[in-house]
Design a protein around this nucleic acid. Sequence first.
RNA 1: GCGCCCGUAGCUCAGCCUGGACAGAGCAACGGACUUCUAAUCCGUAGGUCGCAGGUUCGAAUCCUGCCGGGCGCGCCA
Length: 665
Amino acid sequence: MFLKRIEQTERHLRHFIAQYFAVELERLTVEIPPRIEFGDLAFPFPFELAKTLGRSPRQIATELVEKIKTPPQVERFVAAGAGYVNVFFERISFFKDLYSWLHNPFPEPTGEKIIVEHTNINPNKAAHIGHLRNAALGDTFVRLLRACGRKVEVQNYIDNTGVQVADVVVGFRQLHKMSLKQIKSIGEPFDHYCWDLYAQVYQWYSQDKSRLHYRERTLKEIEGAQEPTSQLAEYISMRIVLAHLKTMLRIGVRYQVLPRESEILRLKFWEESFQQLKEKKAILYRDDGPQEGCWVMRLPGENGDSVDEKIIVRSNGTVTYVGKDIAYQLWKFGLLGKTFHYRPFCRYQDGEIVLHEDQVPDDDTVWLTTIQPSPYKDPDFGQGNSVYNVIDVRQSYLQRVVVEGLRRLGFAEQADHSVHFAYEMVALSPTCCSELGIELSEEEQKKPYVEVSGRKGLGVKADDLINKLVEKSLEEVNARQKDLPLEKRKEIAHQIAIGALRYFLLKYTRSSVIAFDFTEALSFEGETGPYLQYSVVRANNIFRKLEASDPQWDISVWEDNCERMWEEPNSIAELMDDNQVWSLLLQVARLEESIHQTARSMEISYLAKHAFNLAQQFNLFYHKYHILSERDPIKKCFYLTVADAARRGLFKTLDLLGIQVPERM
RNA sequence: GCGCCCGUAGCUCAGCCUGGACAGAGCAACGGACUUCUAAUCCGUAGGUCGCAGGUUCGAAUCCUGCCGGGCGCGCCA
């Protein structure tokens, strides 16, 4: 409703400019004036016209404002500043439209399928804060696309045959001398156990490089599906995958399908795409030179002149990671001519994850790729129209190679629809390192932050951070909500913890490195998730207490009054003149634009900022107007409706960010 | 060496894509507001050569060039 108004107004102005000044403008820049008194929209086009018309911007603006007719949605145009044309909307019809817009759900998903791949954690150790950022960004992006009416498929790629898994297998066998049976008896959290083990193995390798032959052999056995190594690797990796899914569910992140490296290998996806790459001459065989015996892809350098040669197949015949990624990307678009079979792996049930037993698969099922058909009908995963890969910015070069591969195969359209959703890493601040008891080398101490390293066991585990947050918020809840039963308080504490975490992970722009700091992540005041949640809780409290404060008033009385209010707009005309109320309503209305802008730019922080601004506006309103003690029924009804609009807008925004609203705070 | 990103208040960051009205938040500091729809809140004070230097423009934090400082990436590792 807001976007439509902007569009209508812009078209109206453009039309007039064309007729009156005889200048055709492609489109007009629209801005938000710095102060509410200046108007609701600002158009700076008179500055542009000044040169063509040879007159001052102010003159142009003044004359236009005098001559132009106001369309129904506009109350008035004014000439402002040094030459802006500003718009004041017709407030009452705006409010009414906004209010009914807020009651409509987002459109049902239709159209072409979008694939979003995120999380992609190596299944050999516990998830850390960097993985949380990936999942939170990916998941929020998915929610956003769905709100825009797009059909989305969420994939979480599992590299279960890589060296990282092999290393943990080596650890269990060579370091801990454990059998599969013994490993199975290890209690939870298993992924945390492997976190330490992985770091130990790495340490163990570095003490004696010859030990690396264990890795080589194990890796080959896993890739070749050789028992018993393969079985051991399968057990370890899938148990860790399940742990990851549990961790991610804690922050409200869900997946639909887990494509695995092992199936890509065994179903010979790479061989298929290798054929295609050779046929289309996308890759070249090197007869001599330093890359003798390799298949390489020639890539134009950034500026066209220098040429990169990326090795796709090594001289020993093995394929690189990028090669396999090209095959996987082809599959996502349905271009491979091959596909997986699937079986139900687990399902989301009552806020938990349970392994799939005999339930009938449904929307809550997470599917796993298999070689053989399962008793269940294969879902039609893949075949997307566009693909978003949520991967940190350090993989930009490799992502570029993958896309270039598609292009060389003649799939220009799909290459254009392959989007790298890049974001910066989460690193550890120096303070954080000392809090974790990590000793830094002299070189590291000089740096502004330290990179997380799974190999060194250097990092903050996702579960540990979540636990800390839950613990802290439970303390806060206990202090405020003594009368609630413990179960309820725990539920609220969990919601607050996740609200704090998700907002913390989403409020930074993608290009900003998060130097992780416990103090900041654990903060519940100021620009944080709990601040947003608290704003909605306050609004909800008004409605919860409505009846108690005045026996003459309850929800239905308000609703009746509300209908009458819309029928007699004059009754609230004066109240609508209040700029404080108006700017709150405008901010609510901007949600539509924020969603668009956020989806277009893939900049989730933009939506986070919107939510914060809205909450701030609401808190201002909350302090200024005491609704329940309001004696005038018209005013009371009006302010209730404003508060209702604000909480609905905020609720929608928080839902998109994956932040729940607790019952009490 | 080449490529990408960053440099804005004591700290953490928005704003830059799409140039425009006195450069904004949060935290920290200081002062104030709880018999009130819960103070996880609100109000106020203080704090800025927007890394530096040029250029383009009526107008530059924003666009262009150069420089300085920091990060990341460029493996027959994944």
